[in-house]
Amino acid sequence: MRRLFPLLLLLACEPPPDVPGLPPPRPPSARAEVRLAGDAVVTGLVQRLAEEFTARNPGALLVVEAPLGGRGALRALQDGVLDAALLAVGPGETAPAGAIGLASTRVVLAAGRATGLRGRWSPLALKAALTTPEPGPLRFILRGTDDPLQRALVVASPALGPAFERAQVEQRWLTLADDAAVRDALRATPGAVVVADTGSLALHGLPVWSVVVGDAAPVVGLSLQLRPDAPDRLRAFVAWATGPDGQALVQEFGYGSPGP
């Protein structure tokens, strides 16, 4: 009996997990370039603005990274990996303190022209198709629950929220995280329907049918969050982009002015 109880205790106890160690962090090296990254919906616009700014100011060395997501960008900004986070703020959401408004865009559902569904699908029919377990002739392409456009659409039409989540969990519909992949799928996939914004559709010149879900298309604000010790050339870029010249370009690309 004296040997039995330790054995029982040994049986009942869970072994502690084997936690692998990490090497010590490397000291941050000084960067020559200015690095910006964040939500995909902002990335395309900032990429075009950076190109224009660099053309006017050679040596600005602005590097717009592939999309990270807004929260990831804020964490990277906090860790000093980024110089500016590109954030999209949807309805009901609050931009971080110090965020600088850059533009705004409206969220719609976009269908490739190849669907041939123009005139035959309505927001109501689309919602019904989204909430139907069987996708039917439409092929919905989702971006993930962390996508600000998707969040904005759910705010505008709450019934879509569970449908999106269930679709992603059950993997009934294609989920693409990469913005370029979404655009490619929209072009090439018959019946593809994606959550998109009017600015990106105009910026990339995508031939789609778009439909507004709800009474009005929800507006998403696009902004930048700078590192406290952001380099001057980044501050110069932000000043230009939010200034008259930059805003003129923003509206030319198809985006609206930043919200209040």
Binding site: A37, L68, G69, A73, T175, D178
Partner: peptide
């Protein structure tokens, strides 16, 4: 930036 890439890590 891979560790901050919530988009791809999320997938």
């Amino acid at each position: 930036l891979w560790a901050y890439d919530r988009v791809h890590l999320g997938t």
